[in-house]
């Protein structure tokens, strides 16, 4: 399985021209609240190509998280279509891994046991992932993110940054095709965040999975992504896309170079004045 995902990356270049891994076509999403319904997304079009890291940026409350719920199959669109590998998503497909701003680890489980949680439920359990295999993979991941020492520690013994590393590893332990990250570094201090950017880059090289990263930090978006999509305020839609051409892995100093800041400035412009872009 490990090798299968790795080979996906190698063929990523060819697949970009082919079928996107995930595609949104004219998607609208309406939440029915108790008193009123809110339109979270409207006429949203977006492709996620195999092997890429796509960052989605936008103001808070613009429906970025709804995007992830749609890809994962937790929520179905009100209209339009969400397709994975060309097939409409009608239920959770079990091909995604997720991490959020809160690490939300289980406090009674050690780091290793927390990592293994996704292999104990749902399709992974029913497909009979062998335990020894999963444990070996978990240890590999812990080594990748520099947490080998913390294998048998409880979450309360870990710092916020370490917990978030565990959460990232948990999101990829079952070898998902698609890694969905919802502001995973939002609650960390600036230096820990920089560290974790490095961790995410390493994890991505290691697993080769496709990543959708939701963030409101433009530097983070440009630093990590191959492509950045800008969402309008609610109801959300994609109003702008920018490619980030820099080679990987990237280095923190690149953030201050002019070609880098040119991209962030351009993106910032499209977030502050969505109306101009729409017209």
């Amino acid at each position: 399985m490990f090798f299968m995902t790795a080979s996906t990356t190698e063929t990523a270049g060819e697949r970009v021209q082919g079928v996107p891994l995930a595609e949104f076509r004219d998607v609208s999403l309406r939440y029915d609240g108790s008193s009123e319904s809110t339109l979270a997304l409207e006429h949203l079009d977006l492709d996620v190509h195999p092997g890429e890291l796509l960052a989605v940026v936008g103001m808070s409350g613009c429906g970025k998280s709804s995007l992830l719920k749609l890809i994962s199959g937790l929520v179905l669109p009100t209209s339009g279509s969400v397709k994975i590998h060309g097939k409409s998503v009608t239920r959770p497909l079990g091909i995604v891994g997720m991490a959020f701003q809160k690490a939300s680890l289980l406090p009674w489980r050690t780091t290793l046991q927390n990592l293994l949680l996704p292999t104990e439920v749902g399709s992974a359990r029913r497909n009979g992932t062998r335990n020894g295999e999963a444990v070996a993979r978990a240890r590999d991941l812990l080594a990748t993110v520099g947490l080998t020492e913390a294998e048998n520690k409880l979450p309360k013994e870990l710092s916020g940054g370490m917990q978030q590393r565990v959460s990232l590893c948990r999101a990829v332990i079952h070898q998902p095709e698609l890694l969905l990250l919802d502001e995973p570094f939002g609650a960390l201090d600036a230096f820990t965040r920089e560290e974790l950017w490095g961790v995410l880059q390493r994890l991505r090289e290691e697993t080769g999975c496709t990543v959708v990263l939701i963030t409101h930090d433009l530097t983070e978006a440009v630093f990590l992504a191959d492509r950045v999509a800008v969402m309008s305020p609610r109801p959300g839609r994609i109003v702008y896309e920018a490619a980030v051409p820099f080679a990987r892995p990237r280095h923190l100093d690149q953030r201050y170079q002019t070609d880098f800041t040119a991209i962030t400035a351009d993106l910032r412009h499209h977030i502050s004045q969505p109306q101009e872009v729409l017209s």
Partner: peptide
């Protein structure tokens, strides 16, 4: 039970009973 964790596990196709027992 935190909503995020529920989402993580449900996206993997976890049943309500599995969430109940594991979490």
């Amino acid at each position: 039970v935190p909503q995020e964790l529920e989402d993580v596990l449900r996206s993997l196709g976890a049943r309500k009973s599995e969430l109940f027992i594991k979490v």
